[in-house]
Amino acid sequence: MTSEITLFVNPAAGRGRGAHAAQPAARELRAAGFSVRTVIGEDAPDALSRARDALARGTGALIAVGGDGLVSLALQAVAGTPTPLGVVAVGTGNDFARSLGLPVRDPARAGRLAAAALKEGPAPAIDLGRAGERWFGTILASGFDSRVTDRGNRMRLPGGRFRYDLAMLAELAALHPIPYRISLDDGPVREVEATLVAVGNGPLYGGGMRMCAGARMDDGLLDVTVVARCDRRTLLRVFPRVYRGTHLDHPAVTTHQVRSITLEARRTTGYADGEPLGRLPLTARCVPEAVRVLGAVLP
Rank of each mutant, 00 (worst) to 15 (best):
L29E: 10
T268G: 08
G33F: 15
G274L: 02
A167W: 08
V90K: 09
Y164H: 10
A32P: 14
D95P: 05
A44G: 00
G80A: 09
G187F: 02
S142C: 10
G86T: 11
L140R: 04
D185P: 06
A108C: 09
A213Q: 13
A272V: 10
V253F: 13
P24L: 02
E264N: 14
S49F: 14
A26G: 04
A198S: 15
R147F: 00
V87N: 11
C230L: 15
D185V: 06
L175P: 01
V36D: 07
G187M: 02
N10F: 01
D106F: 09
E120P: 03
G143P: 03
E28K: 15
L169E: 04
F144M: 03
G160D: 06
P107N: 09
R244F: 00
T234Y: 05
A61K: 12
G86R: 14
N153M: 05
V104L: 06
R37L: 00
G86D: 11
L221Q: 01
I182D: 03
R130F: 13
T255Q: 13
A114H: 07
L204T: 09
G111V: 00
G159K: 12
A21C: 04
E275C: 10
E191W: 07
G132Y: 14
T262S: 09
A170C: 05
Y164V: 04
G152P: 06
L166I: 04
G111S: 13
R233L: 07
V287C: 05
L294E: 06
V39C: 02
P122H: 13
Y271P: 06
H247S: 00
L204E: 06
E275P: 11
R233Y: 06
G91A: 03
G86H: 14
R241N: 05
I139W: 05
A213G: 07
P251K: 08
S3F: 09
P276L: 10
G60H: 13
R229F: 07
E289R: 15
A74W: 14
G274R: 11
G18L: 01
A252Y: 12
D231Y: 14
G58N: 08
G295M: 09
R17Y: 03
G270I: 00
V293I: 13
T6V: 12
N201S: 09
F34K: 03
L73S: 13
A89M: 02
A56E: 11
V87P: 01
A114V: 06
V189S: 12
R151M: 04
A31I: 01
L55W: 09
G93N: 01
G33W: 15
D223S: 13
P158A: 07
R50F: 08
T262M: 11
R229L: 01
P179E: 02
T81H: 09
S142Q: 11
G206I: 04
V65Q: 14
T149P: 06
L169A: 07
A19D: 15
P158L: 07
A44H: 03
T225F: 07
P251H: 08
G93E: 03
L73P: 09
R112L: 05
